[in-house]
Design a binder for these strands. Structure first.
Lengths: 242, 242
DNA sequence: CGATAGTTTGACACAGCTCAATAGGCGTGG
DNA sequence: CCACGCCTATTGAGCTGTGTCAAACTATCG
């Protein structure tokens, strides 16, 4: 009986036991048998910032869960102008169902750890588990909402409002210690100034100027160029243009 | 036998027989029994330009197919600045699965005809027909791709490139006579200058100036303010910034 | 300690915004 | 049929926010 219990426990793959994606992410849709099947083909990857994960118009043969770090999704015009069209945080899913050609680039913005599966494994499971497909669907809807939210920022906000909106976005997604609804935040920026510029549709110089403006006005503090502290998120929100 | 045949034909609801959505749209996922069930609760609406279809943060109790015309999806900042975050053409689907609160406004940009169902009817069918859910999923993915494409336009293109991109978008979706791959196009603009401005994140005046620029340079012709003819789409593409 | 990459700061230019005037289209009513 | 008002679009003149280019500063690392 004791033995039996042990066997039962071991039905959840070792790899998955402490994995966040199993709870809040995609794998929460799977039963232990399915998890086991998937885990057989999955591998954990640890990836350095700057590494390209998916190339534009490459065919994509794997799907992944983001376990930690930030992945940026970018699009580039023929003359080299670039725009970041999305950021993926843990436990987001990376990959495009129903299409094996990507229309965008995915690149590690920070150090990133992934749990990666072959495309076919996911597609098979999707056919068998409606719950899995539904989770993917929900994430896609969320990404669509976020993309549209960002379109307003890109099309209608001033540079200052863009920076404030960006800091709020990061604060909400990154700050490790943030109890939901907290009025302060402190975090490392996952993006360089150049990345922030590409996300906001402005230049590096404008990003820099607006950050120093927020700093001199006492809205934020910046240490080591990357670490930002916001003492009053309300003040930041007031500058984000809402 | 003859009778039997007749009965068989009549299994497709009258309303649906000539409906485009049954072929290219959502309803293509449904068998005749399901179509029949849905048609019982569906109604056709004909809507005047400017009519609000879905209000921001209203609860949405119906879903619709766009049968003709153009619907604009907008978001508004607290101070009134507005951004169009999507355009829906026939046979697109209107509605937000898994959420009955809309985060945006939907408004008829032109005269629009809709086929509308109660939310519950669609949700029930979605649970029963994986194919239906899959079609919704695919449309959502397509909308996400389009939103991201547009983010590049908003963030990185000049006013002239934005206008060219916009005209191409409309040409591809509206021109009734356009054989795919045609090198010319002729169509009525579904949006006013103010709407175009809200879509492109610029002012009315800028839209006007860039349109006259394209006109004086011989890229497009404009009649009655609304009708646009493009003799060489290639030239327009060259100015769209790609 | 020099080299390199990332960031900040300054001076200036210009695309696109603002404000204002004009023009065109269209329905209503005399 | 014209006159009028209303709405939309165009055009002009000047202003300003953001881009461009260049230089200085800082951090990190061999």
């Amino acid at each position: 009986m004791n033995l039996r219990q042990d066997i039962h426990n071991s039905e959840i793959p070792v790899l998955c036991r402490s994995c966040e994606a199993r709870h809040r992410g995609l794998c929460g849709a799977l039963g232990s048998a399915e998890l086991l099947a998937l885990a057989k083909n999955s591998s954990r990857l640890c990836i350095q910032p700057g590494t390209e994960l998916i190339g534009d118009s490459e065919s994509v043969e794997s799907f992944s869960n983001v376990l930690s770090g930030v992945v940026k999704l970018t699009k580039t015009l023929s003359d080299g102008r670039q725009q970041i069209v999305g950021l993926q945080f843990a436990p987001d899913f990376l990959g495009r169902p129903f299409k094996n050609e990507s229309a965008l680039n995915a690149e590690a913005a920070t150090e990133v750890s992934l749990c990666s599966f072959p495309r076919l494994a996911i597609e098979r499971m999707m056919r068998e588990s409606p719950e899995l497909e539904r989770r993917l669907f929900r994430q896609t809807l969320r990404e669509l909402d976020e993309a549209r939210e960002w379109m307003v920022t890109l099309g209608r906000k001033s540079a200052g409002e863009k920076i404030a909106s960006f800091l709020l976005l990061i604060a909400r997604n990154i700050d490790p210690a943030a109890p939901a609804g907290s009025r302060t935040a402190s975090f490392d920026l996952p993006l360089t100034r150049a990345d922030i510029a590409d996300f906001l549709g402005v230049t590096i110089e404008t990003v820099s100027r607006q950050l120093t403006r927020l700093r001199t006005e006492g809205i934020i503090r910046i240490e080591h160029n990357r670490h930002v502290t916001v003492d009053d998120l309300g003040q930041l929100e007031a500058r984000s243009g809402r």
